[in-house]
């Protein structure tokens, strides 16, 4: 075996550290912006941008209570599973101009399964904590997972189907295909409308996936006082807080990969000439900007504009309207392809 054969193992061992650092720091920065901008929308001043960092530091100083009747190892490992899964998800996603670290070693289906893990970990933690409120919260989390995975799956399969028609030689589920061939130029007017509907559905699904305001039935503060996270204190809660921050980065990157995989460098390359690393920096900053805009739309605007849905309204929303919208988008894209516009 040559040196090349060991490269994926080396990537798998060292890349998580860098990506975890990036995900945590930028996730917390996005959380800070979210709180500041939400405060401004409500005519308040809001906390300083580094407030989430303070929150995490404080949470790691607090006592870590494990309830009497809880199952300690499941209770304590739930935040670790959640956080680990999100760091792993970053490995399969393209970060701005950089290709996914493990892009050649796992496709979108793998990513879809990894993304189901944080919710499942939260459920495990809720059920294992022996609190009635947490059990209700965990059950609601389960309902959330069942609800949003359906439209998400339709979106992913629409994309994969379109790519399998457009590029029969490429792997349709590979994220590298997604990044290298944005779909917007390759569809007609019907397909364009379909993609727009898919984008809106994806944004709504993301809000549910990160568990924010209109869809935060799982940890509804005023109904079940914290839900699945109720019994978590100290470092466990701190790790869930971090996982929540990284989740926005992961889901935002997923949206960017699907819908906006454009880089500034390919646009500006004809006007300037800059060294390679400068272009990489510009593209990376552009990626951070895209991520910020998506976080602003998906988290901040949604949570300020809408109050919480009821459980049955969430199910109706995702299984009814979101699924219907994504199916309409799917048929539009199919029509567009078959019609050969």
């Amino acid at each position: 075996m040559s040196w090349e054969n060991y490269m994926p193992y080396i990537y798998a061992i060292f890349a998580p550290f860098a990506l975890a650092l990036f995900g945590i720091i930028y996730g917390l920065v996005l959380k800070g912006f979210d709180r500041k901008l939400a405060a401004h929308m409500q005519w308040r001043v809001g906390p300083p941008l580094r407030q989430p960092f303070y929150d995490v530091l404080k949470l790691f100083e607090k006592e870590n209570i494990v309830p009497k009747n809880a199952v300690p190892w499941i209770f304590n490992s739930a935040p670790i599973i959640s956080m680990g899964a999100l760091i792993l998800a970053l490995l399969y996603l393209p970060i701005g101009p950089f290709n996914p670290v493990l892009g050649n070693y796992g496709d979108l289906i793998v990513l879809l399964y990894i993304l189901a893990l944080p919710g499942l970990a939260m459920m495990l933690g809720g059920f294992s904590s022996s609190s009635p409120y947490s059990a209700v919260g965990a059950q609601r989390e389960f309902i959330m997972i069942l609800s949003y995975e359906f439209p998400l799956a339709i979106i992913i399969f629409t994309f994969a189907w379109k790519y399998s028609i457009l590029y029969p030689n490429l792997k349709a589920f590979s994220l590298l295909t997604f990044v290298e061939h944005p779909l917007w130029q390759n569809v007609g007017i019907l397909g364009f409308i379909g993609l727009l509907i898919l984008l809106i559905t994806m944004l709504v699904v993301t809000t549910g996936e990160v568990g924010r305001m209109p869809f935060d039935i799982a940890d509804a503060g005023t109904e079940i006082s914290g839900g699945a996270l109720l019994e978590y204190t100290g470092k466990n809660l701190g790790l869930f807080y971090l996982a929540d921050a990284v989740k926005i980065v992961v889901m935002g990157t997923l949206i960017i990969t699907f819908f906006f995989p454009y880089n500034l460098s390919s646009l500006l390359l004809h006007y300037f000439s800059l060294p390679h690393y400068a272009w990489l920096t510009i593209d990376f900053l552009f990626y951070l900007l895209k991520l910020f805009i998506i976080s602003f739309v998906v988290v901040t605007v949604m949570r300020v504009a809408f109050p919480r849905f009821r459980v049955d309204q969430v199910v109706k929303f995702y299984w009814g309207y979101a699924t219907l919208a994504s199916l309409i988008a799917l048929s539009l894209i199919v029509l567009d392809t078959v019609g050969g516009v």
């Binding site: 998580p16 959640s82 956080m83 899964a85 792993l88 490995l91 070693y105």
Partner: peptide
Amino acid sequence: SGYWYPIIMLIAFIISWLIAYLIWRRGEKS
């Protein structure tokens, strides 16, 4: 249309969990 290398994923998963565990360990435990 797709591919999956489970061993590499497992290694990456263990490392990710290790990172999460290292962060978790820094907290107060009493």
